[in-house]
Amino acid sequence: MTVFIEPITGRYAHIEIDGTPHRIYWEEAGAGIPLICLHTAGSDGRQYRAVLNDAEITRHFRVMVFDMPRHGKSSPPAGTVDEDYALTSDAYVAQILAFCDAMELAAPVVMGCSIGGRIVLHLALRHPDRFRALIGLQSSARVAPYYDTSWLDRADVHGGRICGAIAYGLMAPQSPEADRDETRWHYMQGGPGVFKGDMWFYKVDGDMTDKVAQIDPGRVPIHLLTGEYDYSCTPADSAVLARTLGVDLTVMPEMGHFPMSENPKMFLEYLRPVLAGIRSA
């Protein structure tokens, strides 16, 4: 019997972020142009398994997915487990730059979803010359609060159950059930208060409404893709962003907030041409 072993390697890197030592877990596959993939709030890098496993992509791209501190296998830095966690724009940018610097990556492509789709806008504004291209999945300048996020971290509500249930609704009903189940399972495994803490960036600190017009897509190409079933970052939200930036938006039918993990097979059909365009540019 032959065992199928995926061509993904996972390792830990000891990286200082803003002067604080971190043990960051990352997975990678392939060789070529670095492609950093940023997971969504309250989840981890497992969301990008299909991208890491896609031979057509890894033939030309070194796909790298790191777990943000407090997410997946990247534990909180020593002595901070009990601290209140609230992700800021500055801290998120610092994580990404620290990872790129530690890995000595020259002009990587960065693709992020949700909070990752927001932070690529911050990267475009603050560090446009460091990146070859940016890809925003479920990307918008802001998301107005539409539910009370304090429910995500209460002693009398199981955090894993409610985070999983919130994530479940953001997916398209047409997405394969097994993939939807795994996507919400990632949320069910998140640490206490992590999803809520990420929402601080998504809904408050990371608001780019007044700054998007300052981004120059002439300095770094920006690609936007949004699933039609996403009610957090709606296609209308992404369309406003695209118009302001003057870039194209691809709306993906029958897809929700987690395209790379809720329906990876369909998502790759959208991603491959984008990456081919970046490679040939």
């Binding site: 009903p173 957090s232 709606t234």
Partner: peptide, 15 residues
């Protein structure tokens, strides 16, 4: 199979 924005109770809340 509900349409986008009609498929989840929190989607209704958002609208």
């Amino acid at each position: 199979v509900p349409k986008p924005g009609h498929h989840d109770i929190i989607a209704l809340l958002r609208r």
